[in-house]
């Protein structure tokens, strides 16, 4: 039985991932999460492992435009889907307004939650360019931060919306 399982583990599942606009044809172990695949196969280290159970938001990416925890998605299940990571938010090397505002307003301390916060906030501003404070807090409620008390993050996202 175990041998059988091990043989199956070696099975590879072919997928096409579109990450930050680039197509990647991969053969992956079906057990791999999107998070592992981004970090280990595609070397996109900006997406962070925080809890591996969807409770902290550090691994948030845009999945077909929606913010989602990449630790709760099997890469094999993402065939053909468009994924944007924190690295993909720079345009011509220029950081996104949310990234600039977090830098300027002191919304970053240890920075481990920051990529997730950035991705969630960009998704918010795309759907709602003029959010109020409550809407910003709602949008990042799934992103735990242990350093900032959220105060300066919220201020930064509101500033980025202006």
């Amino acid at each position: 039985m175990r041998d059988n399982l091990l043989r199956m583990a070696k099975m590879r599942f072919p997928i096409l991932l579109v990450v930050n606009g680039e197509e990647h044809e991969l053969e992956i172990d079906p057990r791999r999460t999107l998070l592992q695949t981004l970090r280990e196969e595609l070397e996109l280290g900006g997406t962070h492992l925080g809890c591996d159970s969807g409770d902290c938001g550090a691994c948030t990416v845009l999945l077909d435009g929606e913010p989602a925890p990449s630790c709760l998605v099997l890469a094999a299940d993402c065939d053909g889907r468009a994924i944007v990571t924190v690295e993909g938010l720079l345009q011509n090397g220029e950081p996104h307004a949310v990234q600039k505002a977090l830098v300027a307003q002191g919304g970053i301390q240890c920075g481990y939650c920051t990529p997730g916060i950035v991705v969630s906030s960009v998704a918010l501003l795309r759907a709602n360019p003029n959010p109020n404070e409550a809407e910003v807090r709602e949008a990042i409620a799934g992103n735990l931060c242990r350093c900032t008390g959220y105060q300066k993050i919220v201020e930064a996202v509101l500033a980025a919306a202006k």
Partner: peptide, 9 residues
Amino acid sequence: MAGVQVRSL
């Protein structure tokens, strides 16, 4: 329920 991110899934 949960947060925006989990609700996407």
